[in-house]
Amino acid sequence: MFKAILARIHQKHRTIKYPAEPAVLPELLRGYPLLNPDACPEECRLCADACPFGAIEAGTGKELSLDMGKCLFCTECTGACPQGAIAFSCDEKLAANRREDLLVSPGCERRLVQALEARMRSLFGRSLKLREVSAGGCNACEADVNVLSTVGFDLGRFGIQFVASPRHADGIFVTGPVTENMREALLKTYEAVPEPKIVIASGACAINGGPFIDSPEAHNGVDGLLPVDLYIPGCPPHPITVLDGLLRLLGRMEEK
């Protein structure tokens, strides 16, 4: 017992101060993409050709754009561009309410997550219970969602909790490209959540299939199967990216 108390003193209070203070992120984090089409030579599409997942549009008659829903933030494009027209910033705020808001192009206004409408917000704003469903996820998205419940992030302090049963939940949090073998289980879990409910698609797989896009054994993500309220890009998303998306959805970041 004495030893446990000494250990407690050694380990200190380590919950991050975020969102009261900015999160400490890795220097090399690949966050919100920065595009500079002014640097692009005529008809150059080196970046678009280098992207293995078709996330980039460039070249003849097309404005340079990047779809964060398809992007794995993998650096194939930045490595291919001799002009440095594409870079990944350290900005972790990637989530969006609508699929089209994940499209980054220099002419388009950046839309961060908008809070739920008033009724939903009054229901969930201070208490949101989610049922996680891994539908073909590789256990990286799952692991970095799990980490939010540790003392380092302490998700419970925001009233958000991952629960054991869909019957206890206000929504589902989906990871993975939705394999054919998980499709039915995902839909049944969704059905079991009482109304009103929300759907969150987290990670490149759940948004658009990720590395397994167009696999005959998977469904290119949740879209088309369930109505999605929040998209969280990344492969996997950094825990702070997930947290930022959740807090904005609940309208908890407005005063910040």
Partner: peptide, 16 residues
């Protein structure tokens, strides 16, 4: 349940 068809998809690879 997690089957994503990886081995079948690798036939004809490697690709990007």
């Amino acid at each position: 349940f997690q089957h994503r068809g990886i081995e079948a998809g690798l036939i004809g690879g490697p690709g990007p």
